[in-house]
Write a protein that binds this DNA or RNA. Structure first.
Lengths: 190, 190
DNA sequence: TTCTATCGGAGCGATCTGCTCCGGTATGGG
DNA sequence: CCCATACCGGAGCAGATCGCTCCGATAGAA
């Protein structure tokens, strides 16, 4: 049921409606509201699920002795399961302490992954964990149903090649800011 | 006025409303409807403007004797002016022959740009003009107002490094299909 | 001042949203 | 086989929002 919600979100983005989710899950709207009190509650549960799955992907990537392969698998897994497709929700639902805690846990796992790949010399040294997070979010916007899957995987391979060592140009500008990355989730006053 | 529409579209995507455009243009809704008969007409004019500007960018890129520099400038210009931000409109407005004609003209210019960069040995040989088109569309989704500008330019630099020669992994899968790229604009039956 | 042409935005109907709630359906015990 | 009970589905409600109209306000010319 949450899985259906996630798929619906991957294809329709922030415009996803409750009825879309119910239809994709093969249940009625009533059943959906009996389990989750409101749409916002459902979305919060969805965020938790997405973060749990991405953390799990990070941990299984850490099991891979080759850091670079692990990192690329992590990125591909996250993009495939549309982890970043929930990003348009930022600022539209209230957050819970549990969400922030899981988010921090996920970021720490990703940072370990990135640091390890950099230490092994396969990741370009000027790329940060936040760059990887933005990258995943960016590619999650191209839903596999509404866009060309082959084109997306080619672009992702392109970006991964850009992440690899041996690049010519250093990354421009200041390092990406974690505060900015997270601030989007603060709901503005109604 | 069209420029205001383009900016509004870059920040709010497909959810852009007529009143947003009017407000950003500093005019009333009435004036907007006096010039363009309907929202769809306005959007069609907007598409034409966007394609004209991107064609102009391609031609000025062809003036640069260094093909690679010209190509990167073209990509950065298109991303900056949000050429691909109109992509979510595909399938929601009727198309005109003039639009298709301009689109073809733009694609031909981009193909010349890509072929030249490949001939000069700076563009990886397995990247096509359609890959570049998808890339521009992808990055246009991160609007400069709703996302971190620095993060976006870093990611773009990453992708450009991936486009450069010297990459390790060949691009996966079949070549992207132009038919699929254009088919999105065909409006499905209501 | 008066006539005219242009502009702005309140407000209309239509649409769509999240959500409720009741009739229908499946299940299990007697 | 029947009835009581628990669960499920989706028609339909109130509210919000959309594209669009239209008329009073405004600015400029004579």
């Amino acid at each position: 049921m949450l899985q259906a919600a996630r798929e619906a979100f991957a294809t329709h983005g922030a415009a996803t409606t409750v009825s879309m989710i119910a239809q994709r899950a093969g249940v009625g709207i009533g059943s959906l509201y009996r389990r989750y009190g409101s749409k916002d509650d459902l979305l919060r549960q969805l965020c938790l699920l997405a973060m749990e799955q991405s953390i799990q992907a990070a941990q299984s990537a850490l099991d891979n002795p080759d850091a670079w392969t692990g990192l690329t698998e992590y990125i591909q897994t996250c993009v495939a399961q549309g982890t970043g497709a929930l990003a348009p929700l930022a600022g539209t639902i209230d957050t819970t302490p549990e969400m922030w805690s899981l988010a921090r846990k996920g970021r720490r796992a990703l940072e370990r992954l990135v640091a390890r790949a950099r230490d092994q010399g396969d990741l370009r040294p000027d790329a940060t964990a936040l760059d990887v997070a933005w990258l995943i979010e960016l590619f999650s916007r191209l839903s596999p149903e509404r866009h060309d899957t082959a084109a997306r995987s080619r672009l992702l391979a392109l970006a991964l090649d850009g992440l690899h060592t041996g690049a010519s140009q250093p990354l421009p500008g200041p390092l990406p800011s974690a505060r900015r990355y997270e601030r989007r989730w603060r709901r503005p006053k109604p």
